[in-house]
């Protein structure tokens, strides 16, 4: 049984074309021209209950649109989505009570002049949370998120990191079964981002909630998701375990060697040296050539240390984003 299934999902926006200049501005008053932008095309995947999935892709890949479609904020131009047996964009009350969308760009919605505790109380009424669940859930979230000192502060007075913690508490108070996290660490400093990551890891482990997460930061994905879906130009480009991503996407491996006597000439025609620090070298070697190159280097050079590594996810993705698959 899947928590989320997405089938042939497409979304096309019509955006007005605005040309520069006063004359064009007047012309557009009378006759407005539109351009079609396909944000998501033919997206299909399934997410079983309790899985934590990372949705990755460069800016404008269609991640946020996909999140909006799955949470019910947008109605697609084609295809279907099923979340917990509901069609999201009908926004039925039982559906809305079981999902949450938390966005790093706007962690707390609602009235910003209310205090954190007031907002939590409002959520209790809005989601009809029974008293006992409310108090137990609240205590737990206050502990996990370190909200104690923030409870009586107004939402608008919080820093971005504090807002994110408050936003998570507000959304998790009603224990949603499916959680959509759109860039949850956006703009947070290192320690705030780490705190949010640690909390999310702990929460997802405990609650068994299904989570879809988008992020620009590899650390978010690496620390939380076993499975990755890579979206680019509105399409799924990769769907599988995190570990296999670089193997599949990068035709190269990294070879690090320390060889005091090595000079640039030693590598010519053998491998591409991408960096050097003192006696250690970093070489980019095609996957199939690793054995041959390693043997060659060990015989021709006095090697102190040698290691073969997968390129970092960040490097791989950077190349994929720029050059495509």
């Amino acid at each position: 049984m899947n928590a989320v299934s997405v089938d042939g999902l497409s979304m096309t926006y019509r955006v007005p074309v605005r040309e520069a200049g006063l004359k064009a501005a007047f012309r557009s008053l009378v006759h407005r021209r539109y351009r079609e932008v396909q944000a998501v095309r033919d997206l299909s995947f399934e997410i079983p209950h309790g899985q934590v999935v990372g949705l990755l892709g460069p800016n404008g890949a269609g991640k946020t649109t996909a999140m909006k479609l799955m949470s019910g904020l947008l109605h697609p131009t084609a295809g279907s989505v099923d979340v917990l047996g509901f069609t999201p964009w009908q926004r039925r009350t039982p559906f809305l009570k079981q999902i949450a969308l938390v966005r790093g760009s706007r962690p707390t919605g609602g009235a910003q002049e209310l205090t954190v505790l007031d907002s939590l109380q409002y959520q209790r009424v809005l989601y009809g949370i029974p008293d006992t669940d409310y108090h137990a859930g609240l205590d737990e979230l206050i502990g996990l998120l370190g909200l104690g000192p923030l409870l009586h502060r107004q939402l608008r007075a919080l820093s971005l990191g504090q807002k994110m913690r408050a936003g998570l508490a507000l959304s998790l108070l009603y224990r949603p079964k499916v959680l959509f996290l759109d860039e949850p660490t956006l703009g947070l400093d290192v320690s705030a981002a780490t705190a949010v990551r640690r909390f999310l890891a702990e929460y997802t482990g405990q609650s068994g909630a299904t989570v879809v997460l988008t992020s620009h930061y590899m650390a978010d994905v690496e620390s939380l998701c076993r499975r990755l879906i890579l979206v680019d130009h509105g399409r799924v480009q990769y769907d599988g375990p995190l570990e296999r991503l670089s193997a599949q996407l990068s035709p190269y491996k990294l070879l690090r060697i320390s060889a005091p006597a090595a000079t640039k000439e030693n590598f010519e025609g053998v491998a591409e040296a991408v960096a050097t620090h003192g006696v250690s070298w970093e070489l980019r070697v095609p996957r199939d050539d690793i054995a041959r190159v390693t043997a060659h280097l060990l015989t021709t050079l006095d090697v102190i240390d040698l290691a073969v590594e997968e390129p970092s996810l960040e490097t791989v993705l950077d190349r994929v984003y720029r050059e495509g698959l």
């Binding site: 904020l73 009350t93 009570k97």
Partner: peptide, 23 residues
């Protein structure tokens, strides 16, 4: 433009009500 409507749309109550009486 700042997306508070999105927030209300995902809450389990009629959007016209939430938009009108949130504060």
């Amino acid at each position: 433009r700042q997306g508070q409507l999105d927030h209300h749309l995902l809450q389990p109550a009629p959007s016209m009500f939430l938009v009108s009486f949130a504060t």
